[in-house]
Write a protein that binds this DNA or RNA. Sequence first.
DNA 1: GTATGTGCAAAACCTTTGCAGGTTA
DNA 2: TAACCTGCAAAGGTTTTGCACATAC
Lengths: 139, 139
Amino acid sequence: MNLNEKLTELNEKGCTLTIQRHAVLEYLYENRTHPTVEKIYYSLKEKFSTISKATVYNTLELLKNYGLIQEITIEKGKLHFDYEVKPHHHFFCHRCNHVYDVDVVGCPLAGKKMIDGHKIEEMRPYIIGTCSKCLKKKG
Amino acid sequence: MNLNEKLTELNEKGCTLTIQRHAVLEYLYENRTHPTVEKIYYSLKEKFSTISKATVYNTLELLKNYGLIQEITIEKGKLHFDYEVKPHHHFFCHRCNHVYDVDVVGCPLAGKKMIDGHKIEEMRPYIIGTCSKCLKKKG
DNA sequence: GTATGTGCAAAACCTTTGCAGGTTA
DNA sequence: TAACCTGCAAAGGTTTTGCACATAC
């Protein structure tokens, strides 16, 4: 889903389209590196010098609740965010702290709505390890 | 793997078997509810009134590094721990904040050591949703 | 004009660190 | 005794909250 489609959906659902919300969503659209809140905040601050961390947190939470972005809890005590909401695996390198998208086909839970009587609302398939770049650095 | 086997393994690998380490591992062995650090700390404090949070954190990190327990980052900003280290899915209820084990067979990554050139060291298949108990409470 | 959103600062919370004192081999 | 471990307190880092001001419908 492209940026305008998401902005339109947000608007149609009755959410005020503020400059800050536009900026956060646009930033995630243009930066598919699974940035942390801190990264998002400091990047936006370059354009919007008065934006506050509280607004960034509020906005990310709001966009997540509208189902327009995805929260990633793969790194201990730190949030990452992803513009792409379609289910896909995330790989976290514990050496460089980068999050990568990886493509895995044949998930046995694909399309399932329930498991053991629990209602499935979101899949978070995480993988931890050492990424290809860090493997090369190994010394 | 039962408690004595893990304690033996810890000892054989050259790790000092202190009362605190024994207590943390034993607590996880007897409480398979994926407790948070806080829950572990306050529970152990009932028996060992002088135990400190730093020791609990250190011990959990140490046991994790020995591969004897599993760290769960499913809840935003909070760590849970699991005595069971065999790969299995975890379900997190965002309503009651409980973590459940769920059994999923046919993971396409089972046994794989690499993906996209990245070295897989740990799988964390997380599912978020509303648990069966909270679905009943719905009102 | 009322409801909603933002920015600032402080608070709350979780985790890590430094170090003195205690324990283990 | 030398190495390691624990407990306490403080520090560090992330996220949340409260409230005055600003903005939107």
